[in-house]
Design a protein around this nucleic acid. Structure first.
Length: 268
DNA sequence: CGGGTTCCCCCT
DNA sequence: AGGGGGAACCCG
């Protein structure tokens, strides 16, 4: 219901969802007061798509509010660390380069779907977003997708957050285009992490209570020049273009160490 | 449920 | 003016 069966071509892909439920159950018995606990990522998280991660480093969020059951999802052109509590990504990661962007000329499909690889109680449904007042905002943008299959996959709600409509089509769209243009002119690989940040007591949409982020970020890391910068935007229709922040500042604000340490990185 | 159409807003 | 990010509505 409200999900998409990709059909034979995708079934052959042998995607695997890395499930951390067993670890979560074990962790729950450890502490009598399991206040904000985070499901530990299994050692083989993203084992099916290691190429999206800088030197194989899988960023793991520190314990924080609204971080629930974490699952690792591999797609053809991006990977999602999904949070079953917020029913959104923690982050979505892409590895872009000139060849990939030169291929990114697929026709936009607009076929949004609930991702059947996630348990029902951990995933957003189409009905949660309908008439919510928010748009279904891509984290890995449709405009970056190099193949028809990747384009279709990008419309998974596991790649979405409830986003202020004017923000999505306004300053955020420009950030996506700027990032795409940068990757097209880059010498080599550019890693991009995109995700939401939630305030305590944030709003939710729909019966499924999909959490509405207060901010969105997009980290760009050029693996050739070792330059990095991050966009940090309020999820608000009144938000305007703003100057990027440093990698270090983004780590402070999110509690997520996106890049392996030690790493040489400088601002743009 | 699929597909097509119409509309909206923002940015270049 | 055109393109890109969407929503909502209609119709088989």
């Amino acid at each position: 219901m409200n999900t998409v069966n990709f059909g034979h071509s995708l079934a052959r892909l042998t995607w695997r969802v890395t499930v951390a439920a067993a670890l979560a159950a074990a962790a729950a018995t450890v502490s009598a007061k399991p206040s904000p606990s985070v499901t530990p990522l299994p050692a083989r998280a993203f084992a099916d798509c290691p190429a999206f991660f800088v030197e194989g480093h899988v960023p793991t969020p520190a314990a924080a509010p609204h971080l629930g059951k974490l699952r690792a999802l591999c797609y053809e052109a991006f990977a999602v660390l999904h949070n079953g509590e917020s029913k959104t990504p923690v982050y979505v990661v892409q590895r872009l380069n000139r060849a990939a962007i030169d291929d990114a000329d697929e026709k936009r499909t607009n076929k949004f779907f609930a991702d059947a690889r996630l348990p029902r109680d951990e995933r957003a449904e189409l009905g949660d977003y309908k008439r919510s007042g928010y748009s279904r905002g891509h984290m890995a943008p449709a405009g970056d997708m190099p193949t028809a299959q990747a384009m279709a996959q990008s419309f998974s709600l596991a790649n979405m957050v409830p986003q202020a409509i004017k923000h999505n089509g306004g300053p955020w769209a420009k950030i996506e285009q700027d990032t795409r243009r940068y990757a097209q002119r880059a010498q080599g690989d550019v890693f991009v992490f995109t995700g939401p940040v939630f305030k305590a007591g944030s709003d939710t949409i729909g019966d499924g209570q999909v959490r509405v982020p207060s901010h969105l970020y997009k980290l760009v890391y050029d693996a050739t020049t070792h330059r990095s910068w991050a966009y940090w935007q309020a999820n608000d229709d009144a938000e305007r273009a703003s100057k990027p922040i440093s990698y270090e500042e983004l780590v402070q604000r999110t509690g997520i160490q996106f890049l392996p340490q030690p790493i040489r990185t400088s601002s743009r």
